[in-house]
Nucleic acid binder design. Structure first.
Length: 269
DNA sequence: CCCTGAACCTGACCGC
DNA sequence: TGCGGTCAGGTTCAGG
């Protein structure tokens, strides 16, 4: 479900309900996520959530004594549960604040993670080696071009590699490449400087627009307030089994690195 | 260091 | 209806 825009949408949605408040109780109904949920998570009572930050697709909850490093995996989502509404199936973690506001984490496939660390979260094994944020200045055409020089992998695989740049998932990789006019299968080393400029611009644009629209709802992604994200309506190629909206050529659907890619063989070179 | 493929899970959907 | 196969928004890890 979640790529960077969905994670950021989640962060913005839950922050006003959580930040600056004290935790009443945190309950772990099922600790079997990607890795076992840290035991500290069940003992957050009395701690205050000072801030909720994001690094790539990881949410970082500052609880004073340390941080929760929370990843939504493929199917994870968070919502503020209306009072006296029963829990849904697969809601594995719940955090109730002193004022009664309750956050629930649902994750049918359990690829997500919820870990506690008392150290600097940015130095954590999972975070430390992440590439630059796509919307920051560090991610620019000079950087991408330099990285591309040494790589023979298809450009789509490269931009989905979180060591290169974080936050670009399967949907937005296809969408960005379409907007940049570059085929997903093109070897990274065969991108010109101009192509890199174009691609960086398009990645930033697509992600920024998706955040503005509250993310992309395909099957079950909903924002923390239960509403869908509206970027689905802006998708040009991802999931398009018909013709290119721009030129009418049938959209190609291929598999790269075990993931679906969509592109227009006419618009993309 | 770079790259590939398997693995981790459940559920939805499609064709027979 | 039921059953089997396929696919799904991510990431780590082992091994070549």
């Amino acid at each position: 479900m979640p790529e960077l825009p969905e994670v950021e949408t989640t962060r913005r949605g839950i922050s006003p309900h959580m930040v600056g408040k004290q935790i009443k109780t945190a309950t772990v109904f099922d600790a079997r996520l990607r890795w076992p949920v840290s035991p500290e998570v069940a003992q957050l009572s009395g701690l205050t959530i000072n801030d909720i930050k994001r690094r790539g697709k990881y949410l970082l909850f500052d609880v004073g004594t340390g941080h929760l490093i929370w990843h939504l995996g493929m199917s994870g989502s968070m919502r503020i549960k209306p009072a006296d509404e029963p829990n849904l199936y697969h809601e594995h973690i719940e955090v109730e604040m002193q004022d009664g506001v309750t956050l629930t984490y649902r994750d049918p496939r359990r690829f997500g993670a919820c870990l506690f660390t008392a150290e600097d979260p940015l130095q954590h094994k999972l975070i430390k080696h992440l590439g630059p944020e796509p919307l920051g200045d560090e991610f620019n055409s000079d950087y991408l071009f330099a990285v591309c020089r040494k790589r023979k992998v298809p450009i789509k695989n490269l931009i989905m590699n979180s060591q290169v740049v974080v936050g670009v998932g399967n949907i937005y990789a296809s969408e960005s490449l379409f907007r940049a006019g570059i085929r997903p299968g093109r070897a990274a080393s065969r991108l010109s400087r101009v192509m890199c400029e174009k691609l960086v611009d398009c990645i930033k644009q697509v992600l920024a627009q998706a955040i503005e629209k509250g993310g992309t709802t395909l099957q079950d992604f909903t924002r923390s307030d239960g509403k869908p994200g509206y970027f689905s309506q802006s998708l040009q190629v991802y999931g398009n089994k018909g013709d290119c909206f721009t030129c009418g050529t049938p959209i190609k659907h291929i598999t790269q690195a075990q993931r679906s890619s969509y592109y227009c063989p006419t618009c993309q070179k």
